[in-house]
Design a protein around this nucleic acid. Sequence first.
DNA 1: TATCGCTCGGATACAACGTACACTCAAGGT
DNA 2: ACCTTGAGTGTACGTTGTATCCGAGCGATA
Lengths: 244, 244
Amino acid sequence: MAEKATESGPVTLWERLERPTRTPRQRLSGPLIAAKAVEIADEKGLCAVTMRTLAAELDAAPMAAYRFVDGKDDLFAIMVNEVYAELAIPEGPWRKVLREYAVQIRDMMHRHRWLSELPPHVTMMPTPNHLASVDRALASLDGLGLDLEAMMTAVRTVAGFVHGTVGDEVALAELQQVSMAKSREEVREALGPQLQWMLATERYPVYERYIYESGCAEEPRVHFDAGLELVLDGIAARIDRAAG
Amino acid sequence: MAEKATESGPVTLWERLERPTRTPRQRLSGPLIAAKAVEIADEKGLCAVTMRTLAAELDAAPMAAYRFVDGKDDLFAIMVNEVYAELAIPEGPWRKVLREYAVQIRDMMHRHRWLSELPPHVTMMPTPNHLASVDRALASLDGLGLDLEAMMTAVRTVAGFVHGTVGDEVALAELQQVSMAKSREEVREALGPQLQWMLATERYPVYERYIYESGCAEEPRVHFDAGLELVLDGIAARIDRAAG
DNA sequence: TATCGCTCGGATACAACGTACACTCAAGGT
DNA sequence: ACCTTGAGTGTACGTTGTATCCGAGCGATA
């Protein structure tokens, strides 16, 4: 009774959100806010997610959500956590798990294009569901002779590859959508004025060959898969070296 | 003389910037604006790069820069172009070139932390200097039996890995700086409240082992190098397969 | 040389954003 | 019955990106 509530320090975001609601009056809740924000971002883009429109969509006052999140970064954090809940990585041999890890994150990032527009310190901040996926990936590499440091390196490499590559994919897909072009040639024409002029300077011989000789753009998925196998090959080599 | 200025279509950013200045009256110029913007971003962070502060720093009116760039995205584009000029990738065998490509981009991203905060469609947009570096990397893979598509896949994989991984590094470094902590333990303590609570839920066993058993954070550079060699190994395997 | 017109840069203005602050009002323990 | 607590409201401020209009200086032309 004399106890001072165990700790009067600042309560963390996740702790606060899991604390049971005291009064039945509240209409808003963490998950509800997160879900609505994700819905808005999916439909209208990340820049449409303003505290005001979010509140309006929840039939609440502009400042309503501030009871649950400390600011926009917190809002982004619970949005990220929300979508990472979509991942369902099965157990299995490491290569299968890591591939699934990569592919499912890729799919998630395509379903929610706004993910790659988030400020990086948000993407970086570990959320419960994000951490769960990392843990799954790490676990798949356990007991193969790699130490924890090496396991983490492998997972971070895959994650880094996925984020970087899919970020590019998404940006290109966005361009495609913005220019309202459907065919690949139209896109090429769309980002053409810029590219066309730069290629005309004749300063990029190999890139130019790539643009004009190669098909230049198969499905981005093909690029991704090829790159991913590359990375996995690298990890396999490291595992062999550790085990052999 | 009857010629209508060769083309009355919209002039692209780079074309306009390279057009010689007609009058000596202009105090502002593309490179000048870019340099100042980069300087501000380096010192005060990307969010300090406001059209207004930029103008103030140039002793100009708020709207002055709009004569040279079409909006903030264009400003970001010339900033990216500016810093990509710092790359100097030497010739040599492919592995050395790609490693240099990766390492120099990493260094550049660390010198200019704001790079990873840019909206992705900006990072995506090819600028002259950026294209030059890609061309260098592509050229190093020429004549090894890979077709252009495979060469591009390799380069994009490296680039994707670098962007993703260094993005994480930078975000962590930023956290480190924000919490004003110098030692690694202090950082751990800083992002602790969040992480501590999540680990206490006992839902991430392997990650927990990583945090508590492993050193948990060697120099990020070690992580990066290890991951990079991984990726390069993957590319080597592909080259062998194509050649053998 | 006088003038025209192009372009550089300035001034003003506006809508939209994040969020600080003070408030109302219903629940629930006493 | 009161009074404390915390959920949601209303209002307001400062800052941002940018549209628009304006004057003024220089190069080209007559």
